Simulated scan of single mutants.
Amino acid sequence: MRKRSDRTRACLAVVAAAVLTAAGCDAGGGASGAGDGTKAGRPSSRPVPVWDRSPDSMAAVGDSITRGFDACAVLSDCPESSWATGSDAAVDSLAVRLLGVTGAARRSWNYAVTGARMSDLPGQVTEAVRRRPELLTVMAGANDACRVSTAAMTPVADFRASFQDAMDRLRAALPKTQVYVASVPNLKRLWSEGRTNPLGKQVWRLGICPSMLGDADALDAAAVRRRDRVQARVEAYNAVLRDVCAKDRRCRFDGNAVFDFRFGTEQLSQWDWFHPSRNGQARLAEIAYRTVTAREPVA
């Protein structure tokens, strides 16, 4: 009887060890921890979240805002002042906040293009995925609303199709890369703030965002309707960004934080009163960092 009892205990011990080993692998999403989109080598003793709050590399796509246009020099891109990947200490970009100064210089890349619209985003994403970034930032849509007339604004359906195409290309190449999506800024507030500056209005006459900023002092019914149409289109674009992003568990929309930000003239470029100044770029970096590092996505 004693030998049989000893054999039984030995068998139970082997079974228990096998069960514990299997449970440990499942908790971590696989032996390497990479199955849940997390860095390899992390402990697998407990479940890890899908969203990594400290990615090790990043790339940025979008338009002139992400290129830092007019932030540090007139009519020039200033990528060093970009909210996303810039090195300017006054901005303290998202890349610097996440990766440190040295890490940002080595492991962050800016593929945004001044003047780009949402239809350009798929091509930018195709370029960016070659770097295999752990985080991709997206800020695009202002140029889709800033057209020569309201009739020339990008249709909402086309805007959606281009953004979905960009996300599909990203997922086909990098299923686990995280995405931060910034809302389109409030162009009507920009008009309201910038029109108080005579120099700003003179610059706007050169053709900056005429659908919203043209005839800046006009307050007649036609001008009000025009600006309201532009504002409604921006809001529709933001709804698209939110909806498409919500379908992807590794995508975080900013919850309209950029759109809702109560910026003033200090956050506008002193050269065109349209693009963000270095101060404005810093505010965009703060919003992005808050969203990326939050324990839970914005509701």
Rank of each mutant, 00 (worst) to 15 (best):
A182Y: 11
L187N: 11
G86D: 03
V258R: 12
A221H: 04
C251H: 07
T154S: 10
Y180K: 03
E235S: 14
A105P: 00
R107G: 00
T265S: 15
T137E: 01
P175D: 05
G264Y: 05
P175R: 09
T177R: 07
Q164S: 10
S149D: 11
P133C: 02
G41S: 12
R147H: 07
T177G: 06
R42S: 15
R195N: 11
Y289M: 07
S44P: 04
A239F: 02
F159G: 07
A239M: 05
M118H: 08
V230P: 00
E286M: 11
T114S: 15
M58P: 06
A23R: 08
Q202S: 05
A112Q: 00
P43Q: 14
H275K: 04
E80S: 02
E127K: 15
N143R: 07
W51G: 07
D254R: 08
V234E: 10
V148K: 13
A161E: 07
K39W: 07
V292K: 03
A104M: 01
E266G: 15
R225S: 15
L20N: 07
L121W: 03
G194K: 11
V74W: 09
T293C: 05
A282C: 05
P297C: 05
R252D: 01
V19H: 03
T291L: 03
P49M: 07
G35Y: 07
Q231G: 13
E286H: 08
Q270S: 14
S269F: 09
A128V: 10
L284C: 02
R42I: 15
A299C: 10
A161D: 08
S277P: 06
A40F: 09
T177E: 02
S64L: 08
T85F: 00
S5K: 13
R233Y: 06
P133K: 01
S211K: 05
V234S: 10
R249W: 12
V179N: 00
H275W: 04
P198I: 05
V14L: 15
V244R: 04
T21A: 14
A22Q: 06
A246Q: 09
R250T: 13
D26E: 15
